[in-house]
Computed example of a mutant assay.
Amino acid sequence: MSVLMGISIFPVDKGESLSSFVARAVETIQKSNYPYIVTPMETVVETESIEEALRLAEECFKALEVDCNRIIVNIKIDYRKGKSGRIKGKVESVQKKINQPLNTV
């Protein structure tokens, strides 16, 4: 089983530049040892269960709650039975279909 969670989390009471707060959430995800990828708009992480994904989202929230009075959290969940390694496999599948690597920075 595989759960892909796209999470975007940031405070709205800390000004214009929020990367230090986003970095806290990414550090939380990094410490979890789940596979993940950071994109400009969200971080995608792969867990084995919905419970693990939601627990991780809560840990990210708690990392910001310490000194943030207002926090926005957007979560997308993609659940699929019988599959794993989808964080990498989904990208590779598209690359094969267009016969070239995807445009990356």
Rank of each mutant, 00 (worst) to 15 (best):
S17K: 10
T47F: 06
K90Q: 11
Y36M: 04
L102F: 05
K96N: 15
Y36V: 05
K81S: 10
V44T: 14
S93D: 15
M5A: 11
M41G: 03
P101I: 15
A53S: 07
R24Y: 03
E52L: 03
R55Y: 10
D13V: 02
C60R: 04
I7N: 09
P11W: 05
K96G: 10
I29Q: 02
E65A: 10
F10P: 08
T28L: 05
E27L: 11
N74D: 11
P40I: 04
R70S: 12
V22W: 06
I9T: 09
G89W: 02
S19K: 01
S8A: 14
I72Q: 13
I71H: 06
S19F: 05
S32Q: 01
S93V: 14
D67A: 04
Y79M: 11
Y79T: 08
D67E: 10
E59D: 14
K97D: 15
N103V: 14
V66E: 15
A63T: 15
A57E: 11
F61N: 15
L54R: 01
E58D: 15
M1I: 07
C68H: 07
G15E: 01
E48M: 06
S32L: 00
I75K: 05
P101V: 11
S84Y: 03
K97M: 12
K81Y: 03
K14G: 00
T104P: 02
L64P: 04
K83I: 03
P101F: 14
E16T: 11
S8Q: 15
K96R: 14
I9E: 15
V26Q: 08
K96I: 06
A23V: 08
E58Q: 14
V3M: 09
G82F: 00
V44M: 04
E65H: 10
G82S: 02
Q30V: 03
K90A: 13
L4K: 03
T28D: 12
S19M: 05
K62A: 12
E51D: 12
K31A: 12
K31N: 11
L102K: 00
E51M: 07
V94R: 01
V73E: 11
E58M: 13
R70C: 07
V66H: 13
K14W: 02
M1V: 08
V3K: 07
D78W: 08
L4A: 08
S84D: 01
Q30T: 09
E27Q: 13
R86E: 10
V66S: 10
S49I: 01
F61D: 13
V73H: 04
S8K: 08
I37Y: 04
M41F: 07
I87S: 01
V22E: 13
Y34I: 00
I77W: 09
C68V: 09
K76E: 08
V105T: 12
S32P: 01
K62E: 14
I87F: 00
E59L: 15
C60H: 08
P101S: 12
F61V: 12
V105E: 13
G15D: 01
Y79S: 08
I87K: 00
